[in-house]
Write a protein that binds this DNA or RNA. Structure first.
Lengths: 353, 353
DNA sequence: TGCACAAACGATTGCGCTTACGCGTTACGC
DNA sequence: GCGTAACGCGTAAGCGCAATCGTTTGTGCA
């Protein structure tokens, strides 16, 4: 196979426009010191020849790579692809990230890294060295991994941590989990529920804590107790079954449950069905994530929509930035919103305690 | 911001191992004419320094880019991300493609292109020029677009067309739609159904035709008529509603339906529910795709699992290839398999005609 | 022992682009 | 009117790597 060369290079454009390479380069990069008519002439040649700069060459000469790297946990991702995870992170990352990158002439690449591996840094280092991205986006649990944050900070690569409020380097963007959980709880309180359970996420995720916080605050503000009403899961279906059983398979069961992921909400539905509890009459369920699946359950789930795509889009914009000004160190919150469906209703029997 | 340079380059490795750049290069690329002990020495330096070649530089010097481009239709993809499409192509492409790429030291990038736009070729050309991938994977409907195939063939870039049997250049891999549809139909025939409807895909997709073929052949082999039992949809939910209504909202309704996508099967469930038909007692439903959602419907759907991931994985392997031998011109079939759930059962009343 | 020939490695070149720098031109101050 | 500065453009160097060619060393055979 013949060695493949770039069809039309900057050289061809320069020749066609009758200018130097440098001038063409300036036009491409919106550089200063180019007269409008010159710029126009060069642009005409670019359009005429259909010239597109090779990102490889651009990277080589020490400039930007026009590449944003989205880092996801490998196991989490594969679980997601197999349909066994709650959040569709990859889809949403691409939806928010890729389209926004495209707007700015950037590309987005997804790479998988094992967070818990003991050679994360090695693996990451290799990926960075090979790809040399202009920015990196970290999703949970990577966004809470100090090894990863530390490495990127040391390498001076701009990066965004999604869904983590943990202090440390890098841009932080969250989906305001405390507020979202509060919102879900208040919705149920408004319907008249007083025993509202929470299926929280695992401790490794700081967002789990924030959701507990939001739920607790809402309950306390209504003068209600929270003891024994919170169980933990790992966002997966199986763990949801166990947590839901603990909350439901007893006399003083809850009349409503806020689940921290769609899969755990699905599991809650399953347990309710096993126990002969009707949803929403005997049990109201609010889910987190609002992935496509919750529209097709029985009944369709009221859910907190996590604006993952918007958040990633924000991150990309800040990472790319028109100029390379320093990134905000304060966390940025993107508000979630509730999507009402038919899994929530007033409790059948008002609890009298 | 300081201009970021590669931390450790081939030069450092060469210096550390006390050899020339070229020798290091040979070791990296498994080149010939290197003594084992020398190879070992260089490899030791590589490991010690944590050296990883820059793909940008590799591409620059005229060799491979170690990049596989996966091309998806933009509108289709966004519909998918929003949860409104049947197949989770992107997920499956990444699952099959990215992991396989990783095995071979390659990376996979997803890009979106409008198939129906009148400047497909321009858009594609720009992407290719910028990225210079070693191979391209085309999913439907791109895999049936002669403009795209023609362009890639002209540029001499190896590419795979997934899910298309249309003649033309490029590697062809399909999921044996004819066989799959036959399998689904035979399953229903085996349960005793005689009036089995098909909700086919749109005409633009040749796989729609193959599924009709498989279904027709199975029916005819059982001595049954197919007239008026086939409706078309566009794989989306809305179109499924219409098609299902045509098949069900009449006296001589079918007792079983094979739907060409999960979303259309979901719609069929909806229509059945509206008409007061119980699934599977009054109506059996078999779905195509087997995306995660069908495990959570009522009842969970029996489905034909489309081995998209395996197919893409195959494509990647052939595209990369140990050597650049010519790609097979005959289509390669990857067999789907049926996943039994509870949406199929023998018909309640045996039709007597 | 001599020669041909292959294997093993090194030196050089260039991929396409940006950055650094240099020189000529115009604008503006006193 | 001359100096300085800013602008507008060109020239040259080099990014990290693989391809090409050149040089040395080893091997087989007569």
């Amino acid at each position: 196979m013949a060695r493949r060369r770039q069809a039309v290079t900057i050289k061809h454009v320069a020749a066609d426009a009758g200018v130097s390479l440098q001038t063409v380069s300036r036009v491409i990069n919106n550089g200063p010191n180019v007269r409008p008519e010159m710029k126009e002439r060069v642009q005409a040649s670019i359009d005429k020849l259909g010239y597109v700069p090779s990102i490889a060459a651009q990277r080589m000469s020490g400039s930007r790579s026009y590449l944003i790297l989205a880092l996801n946990d490998r196991d989490k991702t594969i679980a997601e692809w197999r349909g066994r995870s709650g959040t569709d992170w990859v889809d949403q990352m691409l939806l928010g990230g890729m389209l926004t990158c495209a707007e700015y002439g950037y590309r987005m690449m997804v790479e998988l890294v094992d967070t818990h591996s003991d050679h994360v840094e090695r693996e990451l280092s290799a990926t960075i060295a090979a790809l040399q991205p202009d920015g990196v986006i970290l999703t949970p649990p990577h966004s809470e991994n100090p090894l990863i944050s530390g490495f990127l900070a040391k390498k001076n690569i701009p990066f965004a941590r999604i869904g983590s409020l943990e202090p440390g380097p890098g841009l932080r963007l969250t989906m305001d989990d405390e507020h979202s959980a509060g919102m879900a709880t208040e919705h149920l309180l408004g319907l008249g529920h007083t025993r509202i359970g929470l299926i929280a996420g695992p401790e490794e995720y700081s967002l789990s804590g924030w959701r507990i916080e939001g739920w607790t605050n809402a309950m306390k503000a209504a003068g209600l107790a929270v003891d024994g009403l919170c169980e933990r899961g790992d966002f997966g279906f199986e763990s949801g079954l166990q947590a839901a059983r603990k909350l439901l398979d007893r006399e003083d069961r809850v009349t409503a449950i806020v689940a921290s992921s769609d899969q755990m909400a699905l599991a809650t539905l399953e347990v309710a069905s096993d126990l002969g509890l009707a949803v929403p009459d005997d049990l109201s369920v609010v889910s987190f994530d609002n992935t496509p699946v919750v529209r097709f359950t029985h009944p369709p789930l009221t859910a907190v929509d996590q604006p993952v795509a918007e958040t990633i889009s924000q991150a990309v914009k800040l990472l790319i930035g028109p100029d390379r000004k320093p990134l905000p160190t304060e966390p940025i919150n993107v508000a979630g919103k509730m999507v009402m469906r038919s899994s929530t209703a007033p409790p059948r029997v008002r609890s009298l305690d």
